[in-house]
C-alpha cells in the first residue's frame, strides 16, 4: 500500500487544553506509518459559535484553512468533531454556491490565496477506518484491550447531519445507530458497550450560557456508560473529551448522582493497543485519572 499522507488540521484544543490528543495523534500516525503534514498556518474554525456572530467571516477563515490543504494537494484530516463539521460545512456551502465561493475568494485573494474545492476533508477516525483499514489495525495490535468494556461516545459533530457527514467518508454511518467507533474498539480487542447516550450530545457548546443543560447532558452520558458496565469511555472529539473528563463534578451535582469514568481519546485507545507507552499517549494529562494502565 502506498504510504498514506494527509494535511493535519489540529484545531486549537490540541495545542492548548488537550496536549495528550496531539501527542497520541502523532504517536499513532507514527505507528501506522501515516504521514501528517501539519497546517501550521490554520486558524481556529470558530467552533460553531463564530458563525452565530459573523457567518461570512467564519466562511472566509475556514476556506483559508482548506486552501492550505489544497496547496499541499492533500486530503485534510481533522482530529476534532467540531473542526470537522465546520470545515466540511464550509466546503459543502462553497462547492454548491458559486456566488458565495466567488465572494469568499475575493477576500482570500487579498492574501494571495484561493479556495478551489479540490481537497477532501475527513476525520482521522474515518481516515483510519476507510483508508488504513480495520483489518490491518487488528493485525498490528500487540496489546489487545481484551479485559476492558469500552463505551464509545461518538459526539454530535461527527455523525449529524448525516447527509453532510457521510459525504466525507466511505463507511456509511447512521446517526441513530453509529458503528465506526464500536468497530474500532473491537479491532483493538476490546468489548464495545452499548448504551442509549452513545450518539447523544455532551452539552459542551452550551457550557457557559446554559450550564445546567450542559451538566445534565454530561451526567446522563457518563451515567449511561457506567450503568452499561463500562470500564472507560472513548471519543474521537477533544471537546467531548474535555466535557466528560473535566466536568464530572458539575455533572454529578446536576443529576444528583456521583458519576465519573476515565475518558480516552480515540487515538489513545488505538495507541494503547498498538503498544505505545502511557507517556507517549499523554495519559497523565487527564483530570479523571486513567487508573487502569
Amino acid at each position: 500500500m502506498e504510504k498514506l499522507k494527509y494535511a493535519l488540521f489540529t484545531g486549537c484544543t490540541a495545542k492548548e487544553s488537550t496536549p495528550e490528543q496531539m501527542m497520541s495523534t502523532l504517536a499513532v500516525a507514527n505507528k501506522l506509518g501515516i504521514e501528517l503534514v501539519e497546517l501550521t498556518e490554520a486558524s481556529c474554525c470558530g467552533a460553531s459559535h463564530l458563525q452565530d456572530y459573523d457567518d461570512f467571516l467564519s466562511l472566509v477563515l475556514n476556506a483559508r484553512n482548506i486552501a492550505y490543504a489544497e496547496k499541499h494537494g492533500l486530503t485534510m484530516v481533522t482530529i476534532c468533531n467540531t473542526c470537522q463539521l465546520n470545515t466540511a460545512m464550509t466546503k459543502h456551502r462553497l462547492d454548491n454556491n458559486a456566488e458565495l465561493k466567488a465572494k469568499v475568494n475575493a477576500k482570500l485573494a487579498e492574501v494571495g490565496l484561493e479556495y478551489k474545492g479540490t481537497s477532501q476533508i475527513t476525520h482521522f477516525l474515518y481516515a483510519i477506518i476507510d483508508d488504513f483499514g480495520l483489518d490491518k489495525i487488528k493485525e498490528m495490535v500487540v496489546k489487545p484491550l481484551s479485559q476492558f468494556n469500552i463505551a464509545p461516545f461518538y459526539g454530535c459533530h461527527n455523525i449529524r447531519p448525516s447527509e453532510l457527514q457521510n459525504a466525507t467518508h466511505k463507511s456509511p454511518e447512521n446517526a441513530y445507530n453509529p458503528t465506526s467507533l464500536d468497530d474500532l474498539i473491537i479491532a483493538c480487542g476490546g468489548a464495545n458497550v452499548d448504551y442509549a447516550e452513545k450518539n447523544k450530545c455532551c452539552g459542551f457548546h452550551a457550557e457557559l450560557q446554559s450550564p445546567r443543560t450542559a451538566a445534565v447532558l454530561t451526567g446522563n452520558a457518563v451515567a449511561g456508560a457506567m450503568d452499561a458496565n463500562a470500564d472507560w469511555m472513548v471519543t474521537p472529539c477533544p471537546l467531548c473529551h474535555l466535557k466528560l473528563d473535566t466536568q464530572t463534578h458539575h455533572a454529578s451535582v446536576a443529576i444528583g448522582r456521583e458519576v465519573s469514568l476515565p475518558v480516552l481519546h480515540m487515538q489513545q485507545m488505538v495507541g494503547l493497543a498498538l503498544g505505545c507507552t502511557p507517556a507517549e499517549l499523554g495519559l497523565s494529562h487527564h483530570v479523571t485519572k486513567v487508573d487502569f494502565i
Partner: peptide, 16 residues
C-alpha cells in the same frame, strides 16, 4: 435567556 436560541447545544439532531 433560557427560552431563546442561546440555549441550543448545537447537537444537530433537529436537522437530522
Amino acid at each position: 435567556e433560557a427560552q431563546g436560541v442561546w440555549d441550543c447545544v448545537k447537537c444537530m439532531e433537529c436537522a437530522e
